[in-house]
Design a binder for these strands. Structure first.
Lengths: 207, 207
DNA sequence: GCTCGCTGGATTGTGGAACAATCCAGGCGT
DNA sequence: ACGCCTGGATTGTTCCACAATCCAGCGAGC
């Protein structure tokens, strides 16, 4: 086996949570998962703890695990944290290159716009392109811990976006991100703060 | 039992790591810990994963767990992350109250100075006061995820402050933090960035 | 009728033993 | 010196058992 059993179980659960087959708040009973995946209960427990570290599930002692529930305060808190990471990452990235962003960030913004404006846009591609843009921006900071912390948030962010996709205006998403990349080079990291505040507002309004 | 067995084992290990009885890089063999704490191996494994989530130990599949090792790049990376969290926290805290910090932050700064300037300073009290000051500053942001992420870093921070304590000038530590709190109200969050860069430089020079 | 406490089933927490899978230091031959 | 092999040490996983805890439902007493 190339991967361990707990990674396999965690991966299967993660997939089902992230494409909405498992609803928020749903209980994850160890015995059921044991039977379903054909692994030992200890393995299931380890997988659940791993997903808890990613904040996709919540475990309470003696009360089991449930799929993470997303309310407006949780969205706000998540975006505050993303703001902290991305603003500082932008600060570092811009400082390293005299106020310019690397070419792959520009490329990712163009790719996101292309996915949004496709004749028949595919959500999974838009979502991936969006994550890729923010990911590249953060990686440009070359600050490994910031990159790691941001990566840990990525799936959680995707989970939020998933529940909102029918409310999102893709043209606006494209335009905002193109403007963001331009503004970062013109006005510095604070442009990012405004962008994220805007995104969070759109999300919390719909909850 | 008021706490679970895995919390008990994790707590015992955490304590030994944080006061230096377990050296960085040291292997943590499951069988040994099992015997030592009188618990099942699964419990030890769960405790090790929990400590790995706190980054006090590092686990690699099939290769076991070791106490986290701190070299200069790790310190730099950690301080980059702390900077991201604390600068944004300061930004939020100052924005909420027209550029002022709450009284308990000022009180914590005064307490730290008092501990540093005591006739016979006690390191554990200085360390705790230092953590308390930064913790209160971050909590003033009222951004729960930023607070949580910062709290997760606290023990890690303490871990290498520990290894540097003989090189630290306590009078300078006191003065710098008094200046920091004042500068935050005068010049805004960027004062914090300079402060943390300075701290990190002192630390990496000694490694 | 309402609250309180009790109880039993469901579920989680932990222990113990076993075996498979993997890693790694040391020996062997070339 | 180099690569290959091997065996012990260690980790990954399974199975089973039982204790500890939680919670819905029920009945007693007000």
């Amino acid at each position: 086996m190339s991967t361990t059993a707990v990674e396999a179980v965690a991966g299967a659960l993660r997939e089902r949570i992230l494409d909405g087959r498992l609803a928020g708040g749903e209980r994850l009973v160890e015995a059921a998962l044991t039977a379903e995946h054909g692994v030992a209960r200890h393995t299931v427990r380890a997988a659940l703890r791993a997903l808890a570290a990613e904040r996709l599930v919540v475990v309470e002692t003696n009360r089991g695990a449930r799929v993470a529930l997303l309310d407006a305060p949780a969205v706000t808190a998540l975006y505050e944290l993303r703001t902290a990471l991305e603003v500082e990452a932008a600060h570092l990235a811009l400082a390293r290159r005299d106020g310019r962003l690397p070419a792959d960030v520009h490329a990712a913004a163009a790719e996101l716009a292309r996915r949004c404006r496709a004749r028949r846009p595919r959500w999974s591609l838009v979502s991936a392109a969006h994550a890729e843009l923010h990911g590249r921006l953060v990686r440009a900071s070359q600050a490994p811990r910031i990159v790691a912390a941001h990566a840990a948030l990525e799936q959680e962010t995707r989970l939020f976006l998933l529940r909102l996709r029918e409310h999102l205006d893709l043209e606006r998403l494209a335009a905002e991100h193109e403007a963001l990349v331009a503004d970062l080079e013109l006005r510095g990291p604070d442009a990012l703060r405004a962008h994220l505040r805007e995104s969070a507002a759109v999300l919390t309004d719909r909850l």
